[in-house]
């Protein structure tokens, strides 16, 4: 009995001593701020920042390799807190959201065949270049909605994805999921977007979709600050120059410019 107790005690003592020495000898100095920053991050591990998870981003922010607002999901308040914690200045932090640059749903863009395959956009896209006449627009099978981890998207009755901007965290997962790259991440305070991706000539666009950009350049001519460029029969608004006057939306003959 006594021998057993003594054996246990001595084994415990020796093991404890070993652990103590190891912890002193192999001690790693860890920046306590990493944990603090990590606590302020959303802990969703969505990967929207490009790092494997929130912990990796926290480390990168503390080391100064990423900006305090590098997390696309984080609200402005938390970003400010992180900046204060690290004693950094924070640049402009307007909320960004994802926006769908296509208005051609079921009713606007005619389909060229009936599709029976798996319900995802990649499969449709690989079958004779998609089931719509337009080879640039939304395919309507909702791969982006499936990819959204924040429940911020749904498919409407017209088979077009709709983004709930309050819930959108601009993590960019929908952008990656779209085989035709029609979703873009843009500042929320720039409401005017050319909702068309078609680089076809005007006549071809008209055949394929009733709300496509035909490259008529009316918007570019009427823009007071020349924020609109028309290349390859497609108008593109530069959000850095745009002053949100809404003139382009008024003049667009096909209503391809959309106010979000």
């Amino acid at each position: 009995m006594t021998a057993a107790i003594l054996t246990m005690l001595s084994t415990g003592f020796v093991a404890g001593l070993g652990l103590m020495i190891a912890s002193k000898k192999f001690h790693v100095e860890k920046d306590p701020r990493i944990e603090q920053v990590g606590n302020l991050l959303p802990a969703a591990n969505c990967g929207g920042c490009g790092f494997p998870g929130c912990a990796a981003l926290a480390e990168s922010i503390v080391q100064g390799k990423s900006a305090p607002n590098a997390c696309p999901v984080l609200g402005a308040e938390s970003a400010k807190e992180i900046a204060a914690l690290l004693g950094l200045e924070l640049g402009s932090n307007v909320k960004k959201v994802a926006r769908v640059r296509c208005k051609g749903g079921r009713t606007e863009a005619p389909e060229k065949y009936d599709y029976y395959g798996p319900k995802d956009c990649h499969s449709v896209n690989m079958l004779a270049g998609g089931n719509k006449l337009c080879s640039y627009g939304c395919l309507g099978e909702g791969s982006c909605v499936k990819a959204c981890g924040f429940d911020a998207m749904y498919m409407d009755e017209n088979r077009l994805p709709v983004i709930i901007e309050e819930k959108c965290t601009s993590c960019g997962m929908c952008v990656k999921a779209c085989p035709r790259s029609i979703i873009t991440i843009i500042e929320q305070d720039k409401p005017f977007v050319v909702a068309c991706m078609s680089k076809d000539k005007g006549g071809d666009v008209k055949k394929a979709c009733s709300v496509g950009c035909i490259g008529c350049k009316l918007c570019a001519k009427n823009c007071p600050v020349t924020a609109i460029q028309v290349d390859n029969f497609l108008a593109v608004i530069d959000p850095d120059i745009c002053i949100n006057c809404g003139k382009c939306e008024e003049v667009c003959p096909t209503k391809a410019i959309k106010k979000f």
Partner: peptide, 13 residues
């Protein structure tokens, strides 16, 4: 089920 069609379109991925 649309078996062969699915394999055909998946091959590219």
């Amino acid at each position: 089920r649309n078996l062969a069609g699915g394999f055909k379109t998946s091959k590219r991925e």
